[in-house]
Design a protein around this nucleic acid. Structure first.
Lengths: 115, 115
DNA sequence: AGCGCATATCCGTTTTGGCGTATATGCTGC
DNA sequence: GCAGCATATACGCCAAAACGGATATGCGCT
């Protein structure tokens, strides 16, 4: 069963935090994740690659940045799972701080192309 | 974040199948799982122990059998996640066959005590 | 072309997790 | 107490996955 891959992805704290951030803020680029989650860049890139390979997330290149967002084409039940999860963890201290740091980040890359 | 434990649990096929079965059929005992999933007993026991330790599942001893069921006291969002998941996978061939084998099992232990 | 920032990938290591087999524990009925 | 079934755990092994750090690639600017 390939259905377990969604859970394998969500079963890692770094990726879960990234998912929560994207679900709330829409697409984010790697440097924003590095700043918001306070984690080394290679670690973020590796985890985003895992999500991309799993089909959870879609990359969009814009100049020197790569923006990731949850794939809107995910099966309904997976979107439901993610929605329920985000709802359940949005008041967690970790998640709150991630959100806070993202919002207060200086020089966030401008989204020039398609939203 | 301890929230990842739910997903770590669901990220294994054996456990996911057990969860689907319990969500549909209510509490089941180890020998029923062995029969329905067609897996060796120690493997089932180990996975059920993992779920028990994670707080996903509650054991009920009745004579020589141990029945497991999803913990009704799980946080709402986790119940939502499970509900969405079960809804999403209930038409999977594997899940259908598990259900079928459970129903057609001979000499299923009688539930003598509390439901 | 060359520099600088953003991102991705590689390498070696460590941790985690699943597995099969064997064995222990618990309960029932004689 | 003993036999027999149901369940749990222990042990050693192997594979997957996460990690830090170094390095490669991609892009924009001058």
């Amino acid at each position: 069963m390939e259905q377990t891959t969604l859970f394998r992805i969500l079963g890692d704290e770094t990726r879960l935090r990234a998912v929560a951030l994207m679900a709330e803020a829409g697409e984010v680029c790697v440097c924003e994740l590095v700043h918001a989650l306070e984690l080394p860049q290679p670690k973020i890139s590796r985890h985003m690659a895992a999500m991309r390979d799993a089909g959870l997330v879609v990359p969009r290149r814009d100049a020197q940045w790569v923006f990731y967002d949850l794939d809107p084409a995910l099966p309904d039940w997976q979107q439901d799972v993610i929605a329920a999860t985000v709802k359940g963890i949005r008041t967690e201290a970790v998640v709150i701080n991630d959100r806070k740091r993202l919002k207060s980040m200086n020089d966030r890359p401008v989204r020039c192309a398609v939203a």
